[in-house]
Amino acid sequence: MKDVIIIKNLEKSFGEVKAIQDISFNVKAGELFAFLGINGAGKSTTINIICGQLKKDNGHVEVNGMNIEENLDSIKKVLGVVFQSSLLDDGLNVYDNLESRAALYDITGRDFKNRLSELNDLLHIENLLKRKVGKLSGGERRRIDIARALLHKPKILILDEPTTGLDPKTRKLIWSVIDDLIKKQNMTVFLTTHYMEEASNANFVVIIDSGKIVASATPLELKEKYANDYISLYNISEEEVKKVNIPYQKTNNGYRISIENTEIATNLILKYPNLFKDYEISKGNMDDVFLNITGKNLSEM
């Protein structure tokens, strides 16, 4: 697959603060790319540079085969951005908001109405068109933000924490839309999120900390490398758990022991069959990956 975003040795400082320190990564066409980091790690700075809203100090940024310094206007035509917080006009209704933003891409009249109809099929926004953006719920606003980002049929969609603060039902809806965009329209999605289970759906993950890339791989590779498996034991006393001779953690309804891999789990079960009557083995998740790499818990940031 072709690389649609190429970042090489990117650097950006604000005075003495080095926000981005020599980072390099590629994003492939049609993939879901997750860019993870705590607040202030450098995610938004990187996104702002890719979108041309911030000038880089050093390095090379290429989007859809175009250099950002030479073809910024053309790059803007292939980028759609959903910002962390909605930047639409609260005082106008949804239709007026979308009409004015579409005009920025010279989409007017019949073309706008046709595109609005397509977006309605995707996001079911028809009943929201006459309502003021300021009066919409968080989930409805997000759908409109996504509609705004898709107005000009971008090839790359940048989602900056798109589901933060949304209820589970709306998050599910937003994700079904994103899945559709990737699968049916082969859109590239560049995602930043605080929800690790969302990052685990990505094709590729880059973790950034203090302006530097600290890990990059597929979610599976990251989990294998940085996250332990767990055995949860139920209906067992603490005295019995101590017999396993592995550090354990008390949970609400039992004990949890951390193991490097499932092979060790198998050996333990064979060695202590009486202890393993009610148990489950779970793979390490992206929260563990993040915690082990950065020493920081993303969900608490």
């Binding site: 053309s74 803007k76 951005v81 917080s85 930047l87 006009d89 891409y105 705004r148």
Partner: peptide
């Protein structure tokens, strides 16, 4: 002040 300008200047206008 409310950062709407970011959403406007993200366009090629």
């Amino acid at each position: 002040s409310n950062k709407t300008i970011k959403d406007i200047l993200i366009s090629p206008k």
